[in-house]
């Protein structure tokens, strides 16, 4: 009928790996946040693919809820970043070590 699901799963795995790599490599807090979004989208693609393979709408329902939670997460995370930048003009994650014991 169409492209086999394994291709989508491999693509999603590669995207997840890229997001994880970026989260570890980059030191700008905002870019690290974007890499988290990359990983979330990889998982969304996996959800939709498995939903199609199993003929179950539940995969798409899960993606719907992931979208809502991702929106809330971004709002709160960016608010934290704004509050953090206001206190100290720190652009990198290495500068945020106030909680270190």
């Amino acid at each position: 009928m169409s492209v086999p699901g394994a291709w989508y799963l491999v693509l999603a795995a590669v995207l997840f790996g890229l997001g994880a790599t970026g989260l570890l490599v980059r030191r700008n807090v905002l870019v690290m946040f974007m890499c988290v979004e990359l990983m979330l989208n990889a998982v969304n693609l996996t959800f939709v693919t498995f939903g199609r393979l199993q003929n179950d709408i539940g995969g798409q329902v899960s993606v719907f809820f992931v979208l809502v939670v991702a929106a809330a997460e971004v709002v709160v995370g960016l608010a934290i970043i704004v509050a953090m930048f206001r206190r100290r003009a720190a652009a990198t994650a290495d500068d945020i070590h106030s909680l270190k014991g």
């Binding site: 719907f64 979208l67 971004v74």
Partner: peptide, 25 residues
């Protein structure tokens, strides 16, 4: 998503992610 016949999610993906989240970034 369009390729996998998830039409609603494709539209929501554009609207919510590209339209709201990236703008927020």
């Amino acid at each position: 998503f369009v390729d996998e016949a998830a039409d609603f999610l494709a539209a929501v993906q554009i609207i919510v992610y590209a339209g709201a989240i990236v703008i927020l970034f």
